[in-house]
Design a protein around this nucleic acid. Structure first.
Length: 417
DNA sequence: TCTGGGGTCCTAGGACCC
DNA sequence: TCTGGGGTCCTAGGACCC
């Protein structure tokens, strides 16, 4: 049996933990750049605020309801997430951290265990030790555990255990197909055309038909709803296939220079993440985008994929590649809105293949990168950075409603007697 | 005027190999 | 008029997730 655990209204719950006066009020958390709503309190849901609503479109409604608005505070959420995961690890040897607020657990040998009781214990203990409200779904496959979780929320229960075929059938019967894990907008439209409205309808389809219309992923989902496991718990480390850093600009950029600076910053971020997980990348993809929502602007989505002559993770080298790539794909006359860099072909640091012809001073690069990491660790991120990454960052994101780094920033710590 | 930033997996098709 | 057959690897793009 698998359990799926998530934090209810995660980012809002984190903010409330350090500001209990927010209980009972309409609270929303915005995405980077304060662009759209990515977390809502139940009160916000009740007044009709939807996931991913653009902030400017719901501004009036929020104001009318005396809402409290936050910018995303990822250092805070990441720290609370780590506390949750540490707690969950006490109940299983196989924990799969699926996202910042979600995890799957294999429950292992459950003979003689009352699952209802066990699940309730997990839920209560996490609340006691972290202050975070969670929901737990249990089922014989990961898809069913995830579905059980969502069904529990609909029934306003802290947990739901689907451990018999009867309970599974009953739950699938009125479970909307669009809420099933793995069914997005495209498949929703396709399935609706076939007369599928619920998870039960979907399960009644022929496996071959599903395979044909929804690729092997849809077929696996179909199997899982019948209780046949296709997904397995995977370690986070073995899952990382790519590392990306990207961000929208705070305003349209039409000149090359600020875009180069942003790309340099993303290159530095990617390089740092690579070094932190002791790996190197063999391929870099650099892309640039206009705003797809603005129909009045000409659109341009250039990207370039660079094969590095040998794997790399130094800020210096990744930055050089990123800046050159931006120069190659940038075209004047467009209003660019976003740039990003993705590293793929990730290999462990030890497995580097030195290129005979590259003439690259690997150890000096490593020393320089190591020194930068040390200084930035001690004095704060971005203290020492390459000149290509600017000092002004006029293109950097908006964060008007940021809360404090309650748990991670010692500068905010107030010591009283 | 204003619409996030990460990821995953799969498939088709092109480049290339002998 | 006729123009191989069997592969692998890579990338772009599309679907999905939170």
């Amino acid at each position: 049996m698998f359990a799926h655990v998530d934090i209810n209204n995660c980012y809002v719950s984190c903010e409330r933990l350090f500001n209990p006066s927010l209980e009972g009020r309409v609270v929303v958390v915005l995405s980077n750049n304060d662009g759209c709503v990515i977390a809502r309190s139940n009160e916000a849901k009740a007044i009709g605020i939807k996931m991913a609503d653009a902030e400017f479109m719901v501004r009036q409604n929020l104001k009318k309801n005396n809402a409290v608005i936050f910018s995303s505070n990822y250092p805070l959420y990441a720290d609370m997430s780590a506390r949750l995961m540490n707690n969950l690890a006490r109940y299983t040897y196989t924990l799969m951290v699926y996202s910042i607020d979600e995890a799957f657990m294999a429950l292992g040998d459950i003979r003689g265990i009352d699952l209802e009781q066990h699940t309730g214990t997990i839920s209560r203990n996490v609340m006691q030790h972290t202050g975070l409200p969670i929901t737990v779904g249990v089922g014989p496959t990961m898809a069913l555990a995830k579905l059980a979780n969502k069904a529990a929320k609909k029934q306003k229960r802290p947990y739901l255990v689907l451990d018999t075929t009867e309970k599974i059938s009953e739950t699938l019967l009125d479970f909307p197909i669009e809420d099933v894990w793995g069914v997005g907008l495209q498949y929703y439209h396709k399935l609706t055309e076939c007369g599928v409205k619920t998870a039960q309808d979907f399960r009644a389809l022929q496996p071959d038909f599903v395979r044909q219309e929804m690729t092997v992923q849809g077929w696996r989902l179909h199997q899982e709803l019948w209780g046949k496991p296709c997904n397995v718990i995977k370690d986070v480390a073995e899952r990382s296939k790519g590392i990306e850093s990207s961000q929208s600009f705070s305003s349209y950029q039409t000149a090359l220079e600020p875009i180069e600076e942003a790309a340099a910053m993303h290159a530095a971020t990617v390089a740092l993440k690579l070094r932190q997980q002791k790996s190197m990348a063999m391929t870099l993809t650099i892309y640039l985008r206009t705003n797809k929502h603005n129909v009045k602007h000409d659109q341009h989505y250039p990207s370039i994929t660079v094969k590095i002559p040998f794997a790399a993770n130094s800020t210096h080298q990744l930055t050089r590649i990123a800046v050159q790539a931006i120069r190659a794909i940038f075209q004047p006359g467009y209003n660019y809105m976003k740039t990003g860099i993705r590293a793929t072909g990730i290999i462990p640091e030890g497995e580097i293949q030195y290129n005979l012809f590259a003439g690259y001073e690997h150890s000096r690069e490593q020393q320089l990168a190591g020194l930068m990491d040390q200084l930035n660790d001690r004095y704060g991120r971005g203290t020492l950075r390459l000149a290509a990454d600017s000092f002004e960052r006029k293109w950097a994101m908006k964060q008007e409603f940021l809360s404090k780094q309650y748990t991670t920033d010692w500068k905010d710590l107030v010591i009283t007697r």
